[in-house]
Simulated assay, not measured.
Amino acid sequence: MNEEMPDEFWQGVEQFNTGEYYACHDTLEALWIEATEPDKTFYQGILQIAVAFYHLGNKNLRGAVILLGEGSNRLRRYPSEYGGIDVDELLIQSAALLKALQLTEPEKIAALNLGQDEGLPLPRIIRVNNENT
Rank of each mutant, 00 (worst) to 15 (best):
A30Y: 00
E70C: 10
Q44V: 05
V65S: 08
R62D: 12
V51G: 06
P38C: 10
R77F: 12
F53L: 15
N60F: 03
A100P: 08
A111Q: 15
A111M: 12
D117M: 12
K99S: 10
R76G: 03
I66V: 14
Y82D: 10
A96C: 03
L122S: 09
Q102T: 11
R74A: 07
Y43L: 09
Y82I: 11
I66W: 01
L114W: 12
P121C: 09
A64E: 06
E105D: 15
L56I: 06
L47E: 06
R62M: 10
E105S: 13
E118C: 05
I85F: 05
L120W: 12
I85Y: 01
A52S: 15
I85E: 02
E118T: 11
W32Q: 02
G69M: 04
K99Q: 09
E81N: 13
D117K: 14
W32E: 10
L97Y: 07
R62I: 14
K108C: 05
V51H: 04
L31V: 07
A110M: 10
G83Y: 04
R62K: 13
Q48M: 07
P79C: 09
S94H: 05
L68C: 14
L112R: 14
K99E: 11
I33Y: 11
A96T: 05
Q116L: 13
L120G: 01
G71D: 01
E118D: 13
L97I: 08
R76L: 14
Y78F: 15
G45L: 03
S94I: 01
L61R: 15
I49E: 00
Q102M: 08
L61M: 12
F53P: 00
I33D: 07
I49D: 00
P106K: 11
E118P: 10
I49F: 00
L112N: 08
K40A: 06
L68T: 08
A100L: 08
Q93S: 14
L97K: 07
A50L: 02
Q48R: 11
G119L: 04
N58W: 07
L112H: 08
A35W: 03
T41D: 10
L120F: 12
V65F: 02
L103C: 09
G84C: 11
Q102R: 12
R77V: 12
A96G: 04
Q102C: 06
V51I: 13
E29W: 03
A30Q: 14
Y82R: 11
Y43S: 01
V51S: 08
